[in-house]
Design a binder for these strands. Structure first.
Length: 820
DNA sequence: TTACGCCTCCTTTTT
DNA sequence: GGAGGCGTAA
């Protein structure tokens, strides 16, 4: 063999050995650094590992593996020396590899795009660990599509007609803005339901259609034409508000990159490698954005699983992944089919179900872990006995010591199903956590403070202004608001601009003074912030000067939860300040809008977890229950009726996701009759269950006298076997509905923990304090009581804390301790 | 302005 | 079955 060839051969064998903990296709993925690459990663196939190792590889070795470079004048002896290194262990070989590096890429030239903050953080953490260096992780651009786009837009907003301090509208804000636009146009939301308007406009933006594109396409179709007009008006108002909705964040970035060559060039040169995770969930706009970023390097890696594409209703286009190799004919395609999560029986079931779909690339998951238990199929009488069956099985396994509560997950198709399950769990005392409640950020009082802050950050924001202009009540009624809107709309200026000059508009009449006062309040607060007030103190100022806190305090008992939540919110602000080098209001708001809190449900609590199958994507659990596996529920009746093959395939992919969450054991349950929307329905077992070979299934038939299950009804606790009783009274309280969140924004709590079961422990008012007493508080530290005001049955303390300034706290909730 | 009662509408939701 | 929106009555 020629010496050059031998050199290259040995080099590659050395790399193979160092990376021998990966399987062959995984290594192939890591070593392929140049050009377009599609990784079809089956469920549980080590996708994230590959993603991270590949980025690390690029940073360390660049294109080392496939490079044909051979050093000048290499000798037989050199090659022989290398060859002898092959006998060493992987760890011993590793130091040798750096000599092969070819164009290693600096971390800041790597862009990794994900859909969730959780995934982005995971990548950063694992990279930091791989390099034992936080900086590498901080330098690479790893983030969600939205956060990356916002980062670019902040710099270049002016080029596309926005101010750099633009605000972000979430779904609720944008719904209000669309309703306002419809009102403006005189379109009744009964003839044109807001839900469908929102959905249509959102899909249009996903597909990069501007209002005029949309109107062109709508032609003379009445409904679409109307929606097009709303879209146009809505977009005009967003611009005046200097606000972007979630979809704009992507679409406007695409516009920026398309229309501004110098900006495009800059990022194309900057990002030498681009990676996109969960590629099956991308929409047209996101793919276009990616294409615009990769530039002439064309070093684009996308990872995803066409079989787990379950977000079509949100605009995801499975075609992006299915035809990636047509868009990029030179793309290398790698399939990761070895599964490290589940037993073969579970995988066989999943393979069988997904195999029915035709619109897919085709993969076959396998494992070396053995076949494991059969899948248990259970027919229950109704949703209550279904829930009791689950509780029974859990208690049984826990009693035998086969599993802990945290090993179980109950995954359902619709949130509505959670009711009966939760009730049964609460009654039986099995600890549980449920995902999908109201998010902390969505509570009214939180949205209100945020609205104040957003308005201060960006005076033009119409929705935020409208939200709080009369909150607390300032005697600004609908008529005044309509008048303000009319003036603003006619002159195409912001609402704030009108209010600021209220005395100049006759139409505002007697309200002018109140409006001027409101404008002055906002400007005064803006000034306080500009003068360098720390963020947490500033939020307190906002609450005090606006009268918002006083409004809640005056309401007494009824609103103390809200007051508590506001304190919690401020803790979140403090948390943000701690974690951020240069904390700013804008930065905090951005995080509040872009970082949710699903990321951080407390996995340490020993409790069963309940959630929809959608939210379970990406997670795994030793033992999984799938209740409600019935045609009419899953697949849903809409899908069954619609006869759309595409919709049915999407539903089947969801079933595939559900099955592949299970590591050791899978229970599938269906019922004879079930109450849905107040009606009893008799659903046949899900077609997806019928698609699983019977050889993989064990039918858990109810015992002959099992009618006791249902005859006891919902309330019957003694209806089932002794095992449940063992756990009675063993409830482990895993916290109240409001966990003190530690993450960014600190304001998150989508996780409702044992909410019906945990009765909040009423803290007695306890010791009462008087003026001048020194006290200590769990979060705020030590301070001195400034004043004491009786409030109904409770007492309001004003306390000067050493670290966090003066705060007003209710005695019952402050949990103060006296210091001597 | 608020309160209550009636009517309607129901999938999934990473940002 | 239940939440949320809306209209009417006080």
């Amino acid at each position: 063999m020629e010496i050059r060839e031998r050199y290259l051969n040995i080099k590659r064998r050395l790399f193979d050995k160092v990376y021998s903990s990966l399987n062959a296709p995984q290594r192939e993925s890591v070593f392929t650094t140049r050009g377009p690459l599609l990784i079809l990663a089956g469920a549980g196939s080590g996708k994230t590992t590959v993603l991270v190792k590949r980025i690390a590889f690029i940073i360390k070795y660049g294109n080392a593996y496939y490079s044909d470079f051979v050093p000048e004048g290499i000798s037989e002896r050199d090659v022989a020396k290398l060859e002898s290194a092959l006998d060493l262990t992987p760890a011993e070989i590793e130091p040798y590899l750096s000599q092969f590096a070819e164009n290693p890429c600096p971390p800041y030239a790597v862009l990794a795009i994900t859909f969730t903050n959780k995934a982005a953080n995971e990548i950063k953490h694992r990279l930091a660990a791989a390099f034992d260096n936080e900086e590498v992780a901080n330098d690479i651009w790893a983030g969600t599509f939205h956060s990356i786009c916002v980062r670019m837009l902040r710099v270049h907003a002016e080029k596309i007609g926005y101010g750099p301090n633009f605000n972000i509208y979430d779904a609720d804000d944008s719904k209000r803005a669309m309703l306002a636009a419809m009102k403006n146009l005189g379109i009744d939301d009964k003839t044109l339901p807001i839900k469908s308007v929102m959905n249509t406009i959102s899909r249009a933006k996903d597909a990069l259609m501007t209002p005029s594109d949309f109107l062109d396409e709508a032609g003379r179709e009445f409904r679409l034409k109307k929606i097009g007009e709303v879209y146009e008006e809505y977009q005009k108002n967003l611009r005046i508000s200097n606000a972007l909705d979630f979809d704009d964040i992507i679409m406007q970035t695409v516009k920026l990159l398309r229309e501004h060559e110098e900006v495009r060039r800059y990022y194309q040169n900057k990002f030498k490698y681009v990676c996109v995770d969960e590629f099956q969930d991308t929409n047209v706009a996101q793919f276009e954005l990616t294409n615009l970023l990769i530039g002439h390097y064309r070093n684009l890696m996308v990872v995803g699983d066409d079989d787990q594409s379950i977000y079509k209703f949100r605009g995801a286009t499975i075609e992006n992944i299915l035809s990636f190799d047509k868009t990029y004919p030179d793309a290398k395609v790698v399939k990761l089919e070895q599964n490290y999560r589940s037993t073969q029986n579970i995988l066989d079931a999943a393979n069988a179900v997904i195999g029915v779909n035709t619109n897919r690339k085709g993969k076959n998951l396998w494992t070396s872990q053995g076949e494991g238990d059969k899948i248990v199929l259970r027919l229950s009488e109704d949703q209550n006995s279904e829930a009791m069956y689950i509780v029974d099985k859990i208690n049984e396994a826990v009693a035998k010591g086969e599993a802990s509560y945290r090993d179980f997950a109950i995954l359902y198709r619709t949130n509505a199903q959670s009711n009966s399950i939760e009730r049964t769990f609460a009654k039986s005392g099995v600890p549980y956590r449920m995902l999908g409640g109201i998010r902390f950020n969505d509570r009214k009082e939180i949205r209100d403070v945020v609205a104040y802050l957003q308005l201060i950050n960006n005076h033009s924001d119409a929705e935020r202004l409208l939200r709080i202009i009369n909150e607390p009540k300032r005697k600004i009624g609908d008529k005044t608001i309509d008048a303000i809107r009319a003036i603003a709309s006619e002159q195409e200026i912001s609402l704030f601009e009108v209010i600021k000059n209220a005395d100049k508009y006759a139409a505002l009449g007697r309200s002018a003074n109140i409006l001027l006062g409101f404008a002055a309040l906002i400007e005064k607060l803006t000034k306080i912030l500009e003068d360098g007030c720390p963020l947490d103190a500033f939020v307190n100022q906002v609450l005090d000067m606006s009268g918002y806190r006083q409004m809640l305090v005056s309401a007494g008992e009824e609103e103390r939860d809200r007051l508590e939540n506001l304190e919690e919110f401020i803790s979140g602000v403090i948390e943000y300040m701690k974690n951020t080098e240069e904390p700013t209001l804008g930065g905090f708001l951005e995080e509040t809008m872009l970082v949710s809190d699903v990321d951080k449900y407390d996995e340490s609590a020993d409790a069963c977890v309940m959630m929809t199958i959608h939210s379970a994507k990406g997670l795994e659990f030793p033992i999984v229950f799938l209740p409600g596996m019935e045609d009419g529920l899953f697949p849903g009746s809409q899908t069954v009726m619609s006869a759309s093959a595409e919709d049915m395939e999407e539903e089947r992919r969801l079933a595939y996701v559900a099955i592949t969450r299970a590591k050791r054991k899978l229970y599938i349950i269906h019922t004879r009759n079930r109450m849905i929307y107040g009606r009893t329905s008799f659903n046949p077992v899900s077609r997806f269950v019928s698609e699983i070979p019977t050889s993989l299934i064990y039918k858990d038939a109810p015992p002959k006298r099992s009618d006791s299950y249902s005859s006891f009804g919902t309330g019957g606790f003694g209806g089932y076997g002794g095992s449940a009783a063992t756990s009675r009274g063993s409830f482990v309280s895993v916290g109240t509905a409001k966990t003190s969140s530690s993450g960014l924004g600190g304001v998150g709590d989508k996780v409702t923990i044992g909410k019906t079961f945990t009765s909040p422990v009423k803290q007695g008012a306890g010791e009462r304090f008087s003026e001048g007493d020194r006290v200590s508080h769990m979060t705020f530290g030590e301070g001195e009581i400034l004043s004491v005001k009786p409030m109904g049955a409770d007492v309001l303390y004003e306390i000067a804390f050493e670290k966090v300034g003066t705060k007003k706290l209710m005695a019952t909730y402050a949990k103060l301790k006296k210091i001597n």
